[in-house]
Amino acid sequence: MAIQDCVWSDLFDDQARNTLQRGFVITGTISVILSGWLTLTIFFTNLRFNLSYRNLACFTAVACVRRAMPMLSYLLFANYNDSWHDMQTFSCEFFAFWETFLAVYEVESLTHVCIERYVVAKYITKGWVIPKRHYLMFQCLCLLLAGLYSFPPVFGLGRYGPDFACTSCTFDMTLPDTWQRYFIISIFLLRSVKPALFMIMMLMWTRNLEDNFTSSVKTIKHLRFTQSVIAVTFMNLACWSPIAVLRGWVVLLFALYNDVQIESHAYVQWAMWLHWVSPAVTAVSVFLIDDTIRHKMINMHSDDIETDEEEKKNE
């Protein structure tokens, strides 16, 4: 795929595109380091016995892998490309699939972190014990939805195409003149709008249920963790919104006029960087808000934080 074949080729010149790529490397590296630190902290300390923290770690892990993959792919497939700007069809299709799959998995993982907060609050209100199989179900649903939204181009429904920078590929949101335009609009709504609405609704319902909690050590822990999830959710929504609005704008203009013109490459540049650095924002948010995580991130070898015996039994 040459630059001149990219529908967005006029959006960036070579200098701006190189600047954008350097920004991706910087934000990606920061994200991989900080989100990897947070993920390892949860999985390699006694926080892994807490199913809520482990559910959060699944989200941070996939976000970390997604940012690490482009760097790894460049090293592995450098012989297929003269530069970041000239990708072969195979690499475009292959990496576009995995980028789409991991992008959906990332969003759905955070959505199910919010759903888990509501389910836990509901079970506590009813006096029930939440089964461990619920957490397996959360991840299975994330995998199912990631596959459901990323596989269609493999079977000819929609297509993979260049992203705004023309240096990478993703699920193409430009609409064809066929009936598939309605399918692509549906995919966009299901991938971007539906998860955001679910996150907000789940957290609102969770807070309403938690207002009725009786005061105890266990409920206080759940209340504090919910506060951390609220912070993480809204910080990520803030980071994801600019690029989501931009893609929505593309879908809307193609739906109405079969064409779109984006004048400001600066907005596109900052929107993509902000989206790419969101795992680092997650790690910083949790570090600042959650005392348990902060203690463990600073001293991963310390096990002085108590873990409920019930959580250990669920392991």
Results as ranks from 00 to 15, higher is better:
Trp205His: 08
Asp13Ile: 02
Ser83Ala: 12
Glu99Cys: 06
Asn208Ser: 11
Glu309Arg: 06
Phe164Gly: 03
Val281Gln: 07
Leu20Tyr: 09
Arg67Phe: 04
Ala2Lys: 14
Val229Met: 01
His134Lys: 04
Phe151Leu: 15
Met272Asn: 13
Leu175Gln: 01
Pro153His: 09
Leu136Phe: 10
Thr206Ile: 03
Leu141His: 05
Ile262Ala: 08
Ser186Pro: 00
Val250Met: 10
Leu76Asp: 03
Ile293His: 01
Pro279Ile: 07
Val7Leu: 11
Ser241Ile: 08
Asp291Tyr: 00
Cys92Pro: 08
Gly36Ile: 03
Lys126His: 06
Asp86Met: 04
Thr167Ile: 12
Gln88Glu: 11
Arg67Pro: 00
His85Cys: 10
Thr89Val: 08
Ala196Trp: 04
Leu148Trp: 12
Thr29Ala: 15
Tyr74Ile: 02
Lys126Tyr: 03
Met87Asp: 02
Gly158His: 00
Val119Gln: 03
Cys142Trp: 00
Phe97His: 10
Gln261Thr: 14
Arg191Asp: 11
Ala255Met: 11
Met71Asp: 06
Trp84Cys: 04
Ser31Ala: 15
Trp240Ile: 08
Ile187Arg: 14
Ile200Gly: 08
Ala121Glu: 02
Asn81Val: 00
Ser52Cys: 09
Ser35Leu: 08
Phe44Gln: 09
Thr19Ser: 11
Ala57Phe: 05
Leu136Thr: 13
Asp163Pro: 02
Leu110Met: 13
Trp8Pro: 04
Leu209Trp: 04
Cys169Gln: 01
Leu223Asp: 05
Gln227His: 10
Ile262Cys: 10
Tyr74His: 08
Ile187Lys: 11
Tyr182Trp: 14
Leu252Cys: 06
His85Glu: 13
Ile262Met: 10
Thr178Lys: 05
Gln21Glu: 15
Thr125Gly: 04
Pro162Ala: 13
Phe234Gln: 03
Gly147Glu: 09
His265Asp: 14
Tyr80Phe: 11
Arg66Gln: 14
Ile124Val: 14
Ala78Ile: 04
Ile3Val: 14
Phe95Val: 04
Ser192Phe: 10
Pro153Ile: 00
Asn81Glu: 06
Leu110Asn: 05
Leu51Ala: 12
Glu315Gln: 10
Val281Ile: 15
Phe49Ile: 04
Trp84Asn: 10
Val32Gln: 05
Leu252Arg: 03
Ala121Thr: 00
Met199Phe: 00
Glu263Pro: 02
Ala61Ile: 00
Asp259Arg: 12
Met137Phe: 11
Ile42Ala: 10
Lys194Trp: 11
Trp273Tyr: 12
Leu47Val: 01
Gln180Arg: 07
Leu75Thr: 01
Glu108Asp: 11
Glu116His: 09
Leu56Met: 15
Ser216Val: 07
Ala165Leu: 04
Val62Glu: 01
Arg247Glu: 12
Lys221Asp: 02
Val229Gly: 03
Phe24Gln: 05
Tyr105Cys: 07
Ser241Ala: 15
Pro279Cys: 11
Arg181Tyr: 05
Ile305Gln: 09
Asn212Asp: 13
Cys64Ser: 13
Cys92Ile: 04
Val260Pro: 05
Val129Arg: 06
Glu99His: 12
Leu175Ile: 08
Pro279Ala: 05
Asp259Trp: 09
Lys296Cys: 14
Leu51Lys: 14
